[in-house]
């Protein structure tokens, strides 16, 4: 890792408090001032992944501007922000899913355990096995529940026998809290499950290859409150084994599941901090405007 940058922690805690409530009027279409520097503690002591000065361009559009942030080991970090603020885009930089989008250019440095994931000699296939992803809409393969979970271990050659594979599938499904619901119908299509079960199946699929980081892109936005509660519980349990990055539109969800929260605004990373601090005592006025729901 670039220690020079790591040490140069972007602490920028001048109070940017608003004098009058009117000044807090939050305008979702107005970018942060040019050359904005992230407020709060962007680095952690034991980072799993670190991003340094990451920029993303879609053609002419500057979608992510100079984002620097660490993702700690065994922590849940939530990315929040208005629609189109780039939080999903940044999330997809972390396992290079943006590679598949035409006209998308990523610059800056992103490391996983100190190794640059955009290095030329890095195998993106391996990276994605180490950094798993759960998508907004549950997207199980139109195959059986078993095959859904077994797919990753199979293509990465992680099991040597059928019984091993069965054990691994059971472990992943148990971990995802789905085993008891599906153990009698493992060979029925995964698409026949309910929305919440499908999403937990996708989580089981993601953890089946024992990734180190799990990226979750609004994993509950298509689910009802009961299924959402189950997934949130699950995220909390998974923290013991994985680092989790979750993008969410629900601030309550961010508050419930995460230890740290990062607020994005039109491509800028405005503020990062302990979740409790962000929600109770935001520093930047844009963060405060968003969290208190004052849209201009």
């Amino acid at each position: 890792m670039n220690t020079a940058i790591a040490q140069q922690r972007a602490i920028h805690q001048e109070p940017v408090m608003a004098a009058h409530p009117q000044d807090l009027a939050f305008n979702a279409t107005e970018p942060a001032p040019e050359g904005h520097r992230t407020v709060g503690l962007v680095t952690v002591d034991n980072p799993k992944m670190s991003a340094r000065d990451v920029n993303v361009h879609y053609g002419d559009k500057h979608a992510i501007k100079h984002v620097t942030i660490d993702i700690g080991t065994n922590e849940v970090i939530a990315f929040i922000g208005p629609s189109g603020c780039g939080k999903s885009t940044f999330l997809r930089c972390l396992n290079r899913m943006n590679d598949t989008i035409d006209g998308c250019r990523v610059s800056g440095e992103i490391t996983l355990d100190g190794h640059d994931i955009y290095a030329r000699d890095l195998d993106v296939v391996q990276l994605r096995a180490r950094v798993g992803m759960v998508f907004q809409k549950p997207n199980p393969f139109p195959k059986s529940i078993f095959d859904n979970v077994a797919y990753g271990p199979r293509i990465h050659g992680m099991v040597s026998s059928k019984s091993e594979l069965e054990d691994l599938v059971q472990w992943a499904l148990e971990k995802a809290g789905l085993w008891n619901e599906v153990k009698d119908r493992l060979h029925q299509p995964g698409t026949g499950l309910s929305g919440g079960q499908q999403q937990r199946l996708c989580i089981a699929r993601a953890i089946s290859v024992s990734p180190e980081v799990i990226l979750m892109d609004e994993p509950c936005s298509a689910l009802d409150p009961i299924a959402t509660a189950k997934i949130e519980e699950l995220i909390d349990e998974l923290r013991a084994n994985f680092s989790i990055v979750i993008v969410t539109h629900s601030m309550q969800q961010a508050a419930r599941v995460s230890q740290r929260t990062a607020y994005f605004h039109l491509g800028d990373l405005i503020e990062v901090g302990e979740t409790e601090q962000i929600f109770t005592n935001p520093v930047h006025k844009l963060t405060e405007g968003y969290i208190t729901g004052r849209f201009g």
Partner: peptide, 8 residues
């Protein structure tokens, strides 16, 4: 995306 995200 699901397949690519699994490292296929």
């Amino acid at each position: 995306e699901a397949a690519l995200g699994m490292g296929a």
